[in-house]
Design a protein around this nucleic acid. Structure first.
Length: 938
RNA sequence: GGGCUAGUAGCUCAGAUGGCUAGAGCGCACCCCUGAUAAGGGUGAGGUCGGCAGUUCGAGUCUGCCCUGGCCCA
């Protein structure tokens, strides 16, 4: 029997089945970098419609983690899908460089290495510059690491020219924006309590605190009511003595700053007689207080609600001053008395309450932790820690001390000296959200007036698109309740707030002076603030032309102040410093970040933009969720369930990671486990093998082969119609940021439409038809067209694989799919195909059932399809291939599919089909007519 | 404690305006192919739709409460 295998047109391609991504992807990356792909695209699309997509700056610290992977891959799919439709999509990656985490790290390093001692010899400014240099180096190092990994992730961006918030041009942009806000009257100074280290005379951030056990006094204090009758009315009783309000505190030293007592309006409060004193305590806490004080006689006289107590007055126990009862939600029944001593200068909650109630933010404690001149005489000059006992003694003497004990509790300490810290009100800079924007100020600013809050609510309510839509509601809630924005920090590593101290103790900073400093910073970086004197910094400032300059201002008499900006202010200025500064376009079409940025960067960007240009800096906000582990728990290093991105790239490859990302419902939490990536890898291989099968059958198709579109009733006409449909679906999904829909459409197309249906059906003609048979060529041309479409549609998700396949397709190793634009493809769908596919499904079930009768191979069968309306007739030439059987017949009278056993009929030794034409040929083999013709025998 | 959000087969997800025996892919099981071969094809088994009440002729889909996660606040 002749061996016919060599006469077949079997598949051939260099496109390997095994992707070897970890090894080959870096080669792709190098090839793209080598040809300057980003720059080439920028140049090629310079006149094209632009999609302005602005990157939010990750913090320049640590390594790229899985959250970055998610974020940056989603962004890259956006960029590449816009490039695919011919748009220009400049994408400048950014890094947030300043801030405490880096400064903290650097300081720890300096302490450990002992170099901190050497810095101590320097003056204040020189020390700051030295620390800043270290910080800058640290940031730079991590940015380089980030970029390397992001490149390895196959993201396309202007990595040669990233924006760094520590670059002079950026800093100047941020200061310019700040000047606008100053000009519009949105920036002001106000006291606010911060964590303070009396030992080091410095403000501390939350991260610089270490909580340690500490023993403190625990005292219950009676604050005498001012108006007995009012209390009687509140409780509906008559009394023969003036009652008091009982508070509990562990910081007696803050009592001199007491200005109010807070209650929870919803709780119940009791008027009690307890060991001789008549006082008010939360009903649920009476027993607890009595037990703590070992009180013997406790009698409840009456009860009322917290709201009934609001507004009642009391006398301060040792200062000539009155206070009143105010409401606060944070008052709980956990401990104490349910009445909270409130000192707006000594606590964050107290401060908020104070602002709301219009209380003074009073803080009689200086930076060394000693009372100032405003304190009562027995405390002046005394350290707060010593004051505790003095205060207690004074309360005891005057009969206001109900009970005193000691308590061991967790208390914040300065991370360096391990000394206890206090809350102390200091002057801070704020951007006011409820101040009306001074629209008349020079420089304009469109839009109506209104406050930042009003403008923000309006912007996100109408002019910004949210994906997912619920982001709008979430952000609205946050904007409605957000406080004024405290933009100052007392650190070294940051952008200085360019304010000066006047000789009279006042503060000098105007829009014009900020702009002058911005010019200096633009030229010499923000280190200039620490290196230069006020005259140099304000070289371009002219007091006589600044209407806001204080009279008689002498620049030489100014002293620099040393607050720096909150890093959120800096990153929030990116639209100004980058989009406008580099003329990339404003506002941005898109910001895409994790949903935590509804409070963070989105707001930090929105508020200043509304305050200066009067418009939101973005048109659309897309947010994604957070990576969690297999069980849905937060992923973190400390929990030990974090996955390393470098490991993932090595073990799975960037394309597989990206394929996984594209499959996600990214707006929710995202579970990640090695198992999921393994599954993504399998589905990736399905796509890859489909590409490979298509490519491997084009080996002999002449490059210049062209022909008219195939008959829509042919299988090739059908597949081209399907291809067009998939392209529409995928492009539409990309457009709407529904990458998952694109992923599914592509996968389903590769898996079902192509691999299981089309490719299986056309194998026979590809392998067995004469090489240049019209039917075979028609299929090859269809496959080539499919590949052109598929490579492009895959390019945003699988940059390496799509490019690899594309280069194999057009047989040009230098080609690049990423420079290609989507192909117009318009093939009509022949409506009869749905009946054909339904018949195919029915036939497959019948064939499966026929296995029981011994017909295990479909090529041993003929299928008779019922065709009552004759709808299948036009497709008859393709039906046998489509069903994978040897023959198909149609029967108008039949009700159901019939499978006919052909095993007694001769089988073609070349095509293995029993199509009824098989007979012995001149070469001695058994062949069908088609195969005899292909081999050239008779 | 508050705002937003999620909980549907082992896994990832679909399931406008409430309406037939709740869908898809992967995985799994069984079978076929051995001319896509560390590939390919077919068939099939898997779910009390987080829990408990309620509204309704009828609820995965509406309401309330609860449980378990996530983000942001307090």
């Amino acid at each position: 029997m002749p061996d016919y295998k060599p006469t077949l047109n079997l598949p051939r391609t260099d496109f390997a089945m095994k992707a070897n991504l970890a090894q080959n992807e870096p080669l792709s990356q190098r090839r793209w970098d080598g040809c300057g792909l980003y720059e080439r695209l920028t140049a090629a699309r310079s006149a094209a419609p632009r999609f302005v997509f602005h990157d939010g700056p990750p913090y320049a610290n640590g390594a790229i983690h899985t959250g970055h992977l998610l974020n940056k891959v989603l962004k890259d799919i956006v960029v590449r899908s816009r490039l695919l439709v011919g748009k220009a999509c400049p994408f400048v990656p950014g890094w947030d460089c300043h801030g405490l985490p880096i400064e903290h790290r650097v300081m720890s390093g300096l302490v450990e290495s002992g170099r901190i001692e050497r810095l101590a010899a320097l003056d204040e400014d020189a020390r700051r510059v030295a620390v800043r240099n270290e910080c800058a180096r640290y940031a730079q190092k991590h940015i380089a690491l980030h970029i390397a990994t992001l490149r390895r992730l196959l993201t396309i961006a202007d990595y040669e020219h990233p924006y760094l918030t520590m670059d002079p041009a950026y800093e100047a942009g941020a200061l310019g924006l700040f000047a606008e806000l100053v000009e519009r009257g949105l920036v002001f100074r106000q006291l606010k309590p911060v964590h303070w280290s009396p030992a080091n005379r410095t403000a501390l951030a939350e991260a610089e605190l270490e909580y340690e056990e500490r023993e403190d006094p625990s005292i219950y204090v009676d604050f005498e009511a001012e108006d007995r009758a009012a209390v009687e009315r509140a409780f509906g009783v008559e009394l023969d003595t003036t009652p008091s309000f009982m508070i509990w505190t562990t910081t007696p030293w803050t009592l001199p700053a007491n200005l109010a007592i807070a209650v929870n309006a919803r709780h119940r409060y009791a008027l009690v007689e307890i060991d001789g004193s008549t006082t008010v305590i939360a009903s649920d806490l009476v027993d607890r207080v009595a037990a703590a004080a070992k009180a013997e006689k406790v009698a409840r006289l009456a009860e009322t609600t917290g709201s009934a107590l609001l507004g009642l007055g009391y006398r301060h126990p040792f200062i000539e001053r009155s206070g009143r009862i105010v409401a606060a939600e944070y008052v709980t029944l956990e401990d104490g008395t349910g009445l909270v001593h409130t000192a707006p200068g000594h606590g964050e909650d107290d401060w908020r309450t104070g602002l709301r109630e219009g209380l003074e933010i009073y803080c009689p404690v200086d930076e060394a932790g000693r009372y100032d001149e405003t304190a009562p005489s027995f405390l002046r000059g005394v350290e707060v820690w010593t004051a505790n006992d003095l205060v207690i003694e004074r309360l005891r003497e005057s009969g206001h001390l109900f009970h005193a004990a000691r308590i061991v509790h967790s208390y914040p300490h300065d991370w360096r000296g391990r000394t206890p810290t206090i809350f102390r009100a200091t002057e801070q800079w704020f951007v006011g959200v409820d101040r009306s924007v001074d629209a008349g100020a020079a420089g304009g600013g469109e839009g109506s007036s209104g406050t930042l809050r009003e403008r923000a609510l309006e912007a996100i309510g109408s002019s910004v698109r949210f994906v997912p839509e619920w982001g709008r509601n979430r952000m609205r809630g946050m904007l409605e309740s957000r406080p004024d924005w405290c933009i100052s920090r007392q650190r070294a590593w940051g952008l200085p707030i360019p304010a000066f101290r006047l000789p009279d103790g006042g503060v000098f900073m105007t829009a014009a002076s900020v702009r002058a400093v911005a010019a200096a910073v633009a030229a010499r970086g923000s280190d200039a603030w620490f290196r230069e004197d006020p005259e140099t910094l304000l070289a371009t400032y002219e007091p006589s032309s600044d209407p806001h300059a204080p009279p008689g201002l002498k620049v030489g008499a100014l002293r620099k102040m040393h607050d720096i900006f909150d890093v959120w202010f800096e990153s929030g200025a990116s639209w100004q410093a980058v989009l406008r500064g580099r003329e990339l376009g404003f506002p941005a079409d898109l910001y895409l970040e994790g949903s935590d940025q509804h409070r963070g960067w989105f707001q930090a960007s929105l508020l200043p933009a509304l305050g200066s240009v009067g418009a939101a800096p973005y048109r659309t906000l897309v947010t994604h969720g957070f990576i969690v582990d297999k069980e849905g728990r937060k992923m973190s290093k400390s929990l030990g369930n974090a996955l390393d991105v470098e490991d993932l790239l090595r073990d799975f490859g960037a394309d597989v990671c990206r394929w996984w990302v594209s499959s996600l419902a990214y707006e929710n939490d995202i579970r990640l486990d090695l198992e999921f990536l393994r599954l993504a890898g399998e589905s990736y291989r399905k796509v890859r093998n489909t590409l490979r099968f298509l490519l491997s059958n084009l080996d002999d198709l002449p490059q210049d082969d062209r022909a008219e579109a195939p008959d829509p009733r042919s299988i090739d006409g059908w597949i081209l119609g399907e291809t067009a449909r998939v392209q529409r679906t995928v492009l539409d999904a990309y457009e709407r940021f529904e990458f998952r829909t694109a992923h599914l459409a592509i996968f389903d197309f590769c898996n079902e439409t192509l691999s299981a249906t089309y490719c299986a059906a056309v194998k026979d003609r590809l392998y067995c038809d004469r090489r240049d048979a019209p039917r075979r060529r028609r299929t090859q041309r269809a496959m080539r067209e499919i590949l052109h479409v598929l490579c492009r549609l895959l390019a945003p998700i699988l940059p390496h694989t799509a490019d690899e396949a594309y280069r194999a397709l057009i047989r040009d190793a230098e080609a690049c799919v990423h420079e290609q634009v989507v192909r117009p493809i318009d093939h009509a769908q022949e409506p009869g195909w749905s009946a054909v596919l339904a018949a195919r499904a029915a036939a497959q079930k019948s064939l499966e059932a026929a296995k029981a009768d011994g017909i295990e191979n479909p090529l041993d069968a003929m299928v008779v399809l019922p065709d009552p309306e004759g709808r299948l007739e036009a497709f008859l030439p393709e039906l046998a291939d489509l069903l994978g059987v040897s023959r198909v017949a149609l029967d108008r009278a039949a009700q159901r599919v019939a499978v006919v056993d052909l095993r007694d009929q001769p089988r073609c030794e070349r095509s293995w089909r029993r199509d009824g034409t098989v007979r012995a040929r001149s070469d001695g083999g058994l062949l069908s007519d088609r195969d005899a013709e292909a081999v050239g025998v008779t």
